[in-house]
Nucleic acid binder design. Sequence first.
DNA 1: AAGACGAAAGTGGTTGA
DNA 2: TCAACAACTTTCGTCTT
Length: 306
Amino acid sequence: MRKSIKECPECGSTTIFRDEEKGETLCKSCGLVIEDKMVDFSQEWRDFEDDRGGSRRRTGAPSTYTQFDQGLGTEVGTTADFYKLGSEKDKNKFFRLRKWHYRISTAIERNLKVALAELKRVGSFLKLSKNVEEEAARIYTLAVQKGLVRGRSMESVVAGALYAACRRHEVPRTLDEMGEASGIEKKEIGRTYRFITRELEINILPSNPADYISRFASALNLSADTQTRAVEILEQARDIELTSGRGPTGIAAAALYVSSLIHAEKRTQREVADVAGVTEVTIRNRYKELIKKLKLTKEVEKSKKK
DNA sequence: AAGACGAAAGTGGTTGA
DNA sequence: TCAACAACTTTCGTCTT
């Protein structure tokens, strides 16, 4: 959750008013809109918890973040307001604020329009669900409002937001895949990803190797049995703390490799390495650890003889 | 001949002084 | 801010099937 502003940056007074309904934070003494298009953190309009309906606060269609301004816009005052102002000083201030607000909001809108198109493109390339795209769009919007795009390419922030959204929804894509889809170098995506999650205080659980299994397995045409076995192996590995500190894709790949040996559906290290985006060497290292620590040697030998 | 294995050197990121 | 460090990669030679 974001910090609330205490003083008006324009006039320094402390008469900050947060209008939840309009989604704006403004200064009552000079009228500056400090922040608009706030994110509504209140109750969702859907409510599956119980039937009382008391917590169902919002009605109507949910606003969407994949629409560039969520169908809402703001403007500072109108000319009618202008004649209520007395002094020359106030009038000048009025115009200045109006002008700046206009510039800022149109800039943001232009940016979002382009960025969200890019986001949808990359999202559909990666076959991401609508939910994930929404989440990514929300993250991106926040990033723009906080001015985090400055000094970074828009595309890389889009990619970072998508990556973060994937992680939150536990449908991880690797940085390599994200890079391929967006045309941004993976280290750049990693950097912006880390930057925006830190700045926006989004905390993300370290990704779970098991989340990768099904995708890798289907890329390798492995049976469901092999897949579930791989997940079991991962669980055992996690219990003896083999997984912490290691790259999740490497572990997932090794577990899948071992499992493929046990189920006599052998894939070469090369093949597994390619779909997982790691090298054979990493698979070998993880594989050795798994075999040794989990005492799987027997099982592998057994199925070899068949 | 292809795949598996392992050693050695290099890379990018994290951490702690 | 810099150096130490762990994880991972690249490269390459050797062994196994």
